[in-house]
Design a binder for these strands. Structure first.
Lengths: 230, 230
DNA sequence: GGGCAGGTTATGTCTAGACATAATCAAAGG
DNA sequence: CCTTTGATTATGTCTAGACATAACCTGCCC
């Protein structure tokens, strides 16, 4: 273990154990320099990592303090559905319902995707059962789609992940009732609860794609693990 | 702007613009040193920040490369409900239904909270309308609860946030139907779709609390913004 | 007392080196 | 041909300073 790593973990341990509580001052850099017998840059680097991990705050002239870890946040993994299902050991396939170019903004509604766009609808299956209904718009000005039959067998999400880099994303997650058409497609009762994930993706300010995925409530949980500074 | 910040943003710009694509090599440190006329530590610090932001990878002897940004992840903010509702400009209040100590593990089921625990049930209101039903278990071995009437007026989530630090959390998000009791409490139709967020919280390996919050599907969306390295 | 100037102090940024470490390649040896 | 060894090279860690900057304190002057 490197020295800076040792300094870091010593302080982290004192924080995690509760010995140092939020708001407490941690030793001055010069005290740590004296304690570990190293250069200030080494101590500083260790403290910098603790800042990045969200465990401490540093204030000029004042010193460094244990941060108030009270921001509830979690890293939510939203993986490629094909990989997700394969990882569960279930057979995956995708069926395409609709794939056409839309040119009028009215068709595109609130998605924020400018015309012309490619409208794709289809269903993801896991183990032969419908797993998610997907409706997607792809901005044709930004994304070069190679062939008309690209999405016959490969889900557009997988294709985009491997072909188009993105820089920003926004997710909205909510619960909805299945309703008529959706219930039929997913083989559900009309008022079954479904989890709906909407995702907007941009690349340097230009909209890339919008997708709305609807999962039967009893077949999909989003799980997020979080350790501040883990 | 500091020099290291300038180096960082120059490279970031070239990545975000697409000039440098995933897998591309970025200039060697010694080239950047020559280009900016600075010390290697300064260049190194700029690159280190890019690594932390997830934009590049560095490999010893090999060089630094633009990272493959293909991991779909989002930072999901799960704030204090009282603050959330106040920020929307709506009046917030909390009503307590149940608050009792449970000693038998059977009462605690799958929550992972060891007995003895405090079982709390109540409802969060926004603008006079029920906003979320909450059922919570607090591990009494880990959390010192001050007074029996603490949770009469303050929601346990708010109190915990301000009194008990935590180190790990796990979330599960899913869609459920309201059903009988819940529908009555939230003034919903029995088969209305609800968003259910479950959260387990630990402190250095010891369970602190488990909470299940159920929101009417039409009153709450989880929104997550994400910029890799923003 | 109120406000401003100047000193003190802790962190922020930076320099110009040093040695450590790991990956790669080429040459020597079996 | 295959393996090992050594040289090379780029990054990783570290030192011992320097000056900059921001916050706080003290004392002076009005």
């Amino acid at each position: 273990m490197t020295l800076q790593e040792r300094i870091r973990s010593d302080i982290e341990e004192r924080i995690r154990s509760g010995e140092l509580r939020p708001g407490d001052r941690i030793p001055f850099e010069h005290e740590l320099v004296a304690h570990y017998g190293c250069a200030r840059a080494t101590v500083s680097k260790a403290l910098e990592r603790l800042v990045h991990a969200g465990l401490i705050e540093r204030r000029r002239k004042v010193g460094s303090f244990v941060a108030h870890p009270q921001v509830h946040a979690a890293v939510l993994a939203v993986p490629d559905l094909a990989q997700l299902i394969a990882a569960r050991g279930e057979e995956y396939h995708w069926t395409l319902d609709t794939c056409r170019v839309v040119n009028r903004d009215a068709d595109i509604e609130v998605s924020g995707i400018p015309a012309p766009a490619l409208l794709i609808e289809g269903v993801h299956f896991a183990g032969g059962q419908p797993f998610a209904m997907e409706r997607r718009l792809i901005a044709l000005d930004t994304v070069p789609v190679p062939r008309a039959d690209t999405f016959e067998t490969e889900a557009p999400g997988s294709w985009l992940l491997h072909h188009v880099p993105w820089t920003d994303a926004r997710h909205r997650i909510r619960a909805v009732s299945a309703g008529g058409a959706l219930a039929k497609r997913l083989k559900l009762d009309a008022h079954a609860a479904c989890l709906q994930v909407e995702r907007w993706t941009w690349r340097t300010g230009r909209a890339v794609t919008f997708v709305r995925q609807t999962f039967p409530g009893d077949r999909y949980d989003l799980v997020a693990e979080f350790t501040p500074g883990g």
